[in-house]
Design a protein around this nucleic acid. Structure first.
Lengths: 137, 137
DNA sequence: AGCAAAGCTGACGCGAGGGTAAACGTGACG
DNA sequence: CGTCACGTTTACCCTCGCGTCAGCTTTGCT
């Protein structure tokens, strides 16, 4: 029967959490935000292949700094898209904007790291000045 | 009188905002979090030199990725510190931890940027494959 | 006296969940 | 059959760094 097929393709929330290193709370949160659509067996959620694919994309999107809302739109594009072409083009446009943001962020981070290092060097100099004084007195 | 001295050393919330490019809300928020201690003339806040010095450090700390709570602790160390030595040493220790975090963050960001670029390149390839197909059909 | 601008307090909202409680289900064991 | 221990569900408040809104007083200008 298709029950066997289902058994292999459906995962409980626990299995999902172990597989993807997220908490149950997170999966329920994503469901509430309409990012995932697990089916229900009684009260329990059962996650399909589709949910797993979506979750992978969600986690990847988060690493790229997309907001959950942006990710939801991209996922919707993916599954509702009449034309793969349009999906790809819109996805690319969004990705380009985000790439720019990420590179700007990295530049700021570099500046901050440089400035912090300077401050630390200064502090160490002061420390070196103070320590002998302490010993001498 | 010392009123003149005060006038020079005290700033209204507006002047503070213009000087430091922050909103009134931010200054009130920092006061609520005990990062700033403006004096009151009636119900109006008047910010002292000390507040300005603290605000500078707050904004710098934020650029370094410190939380406001961490910044508060550092500022308290600064003003309450019996020994400058201890202040500097503890500050340095905290700074070292943060520097490590920042560099880790930058590494992750670099990875994400690289991965995103790969994905974009792949998407462009697909687009290039799809576009002629569209024209040919 | 009237009115606008600035300032004040207090409360609620966001994003992306975390934490905890209370209730419900389910399986194993005696 | 009871009950013990879990696992899962819904549901509500907490976080952080403010933004935003409503409603109040205070101040200055005409």
């Amino acid at each position: 029967m298709n029950e066997d097929v289902m058994k292999e393709s459906l995962m409980t929330i626990r299995e999902m959490c172990d597989t993807f290193a997220v908490t149950p709370r997170t999966l329920r949160f994503y469901e509430a935000k309409e990012l995932l659509f697990p089916i229900r067996e009684g009260q329990k959620r059962l996650f399909t292949r589709r949910d797993r694919a979506r979750l992978k994309l969600i986690l990847r999107g988060k690493r790229f700094g997309f907001s959950l809302e942006e990710i939801r739109q991209l996922l919707d594009l993916y599954h509702m898209g009449d034309s793969q072409f349009t999906q790809l083009r819109e996805g690319l446009t969004l990705a380009q904007a985000h790439l720019a943001q990420m590179e700007e962020k990295r530049a700021e981070l570099d500046d901050a790291i440089g400035e912090l290092k300077e401050q630390m060097a200064w502090a160490e100099t002061r420390l070196a000045e103070l320590e002998p004084t302490k010993r001498a007195s």
